[in-house]
Amino acid sequence: MLKLVLALAVLVISAPARAQTYAPGAPVCLHVFGELEGERIDCIFASFAQCQAAASGRPATCVMNPYAAQAQPARAGRRVR
């Protein structure tokens, strides 16, 4: 019985952990923390205003998504013809 328990413990411990992922299409993330809701990051907001409305009254804060796909600004300069 002890060997079975140890074998199961090894399997559980050696299972790969899931990492927090960020959605690349959403530029703003809601970082929720606290004992009631647990800690997590939800990257589902298009603007800070949307995120702040969701964070209102909760132990949460809005942060920029470090992996958001950002449009490349057009280069300013002279065109060669």
Rank of each mutant, 00 (worst) to 15 (best):
residue 7 A to W: 05
residue 26 A to E: 00
residue 4 L to Y: 13
residue 80 V to H: 14
residue 21 T to W: 14
residue 26 A to H: 07
residue 41 I to T: 12
residue 31 H to D: 08
residue 20 Q to D: 02
residue 59 P to C: 03
residue 59 P to K: 11
residue 71 A to F: 15
residue 36 L to S: 15
residue 27 P to D: 00
residue 7 A to E: 04
residue 6 L to I: 07
residue 30 L to P: 01
residue 75 R to V: 08
residue 62 C to D: 01
residue 16 P to A: 04
residue 12 V to R: 14
residue 16 P to K: 06
residue 62 C to Q: 03
residue 44 I to V: 02
residue 61 T to P: 07
residue 37 E to V: 05
residue 17 A to D: 07
residue 64 M to N: 10
residue 72 Q to I: 13
residue 62 C to L: 03
residue 33 F to N: 12
residue 36 L to A: 15
residue 24 P to Y: 06
residue 5 V to E: 05
residue 5 V to T: 08
residue 71 A to G: 08
residue 80 V to L: 11
residue 73 P to K: 04
residue 81 R to N: 05
residue 28 V to D: 04
residue 50 Q to A: 04
residue 75 R to I: 04
residue 5 V to M: 04
residue 65 N to C: 00
residue 68 A to M: 00
residue 21 T to R: 12
residue 76 A to R: 15
residue 58 R to V: 09
residue 30 L to R: 05
residue 27 P to L: 00
residue 14 S to Q: 13
residue 74 A to T: 13
residue 67 Y to V: 03
residue 4 L to G: 12
residue 33 F to E: 12
residue 13 I to K: 08
residue 19 A to R: 01
residue 11 L to K: 10
residue 26 A to C: 08
residue 49 A to H: 07
residue 8 L to Q: 09
residue 16 P to G: 11
residue 80 V to W: 11
residue 27 P to A: 02
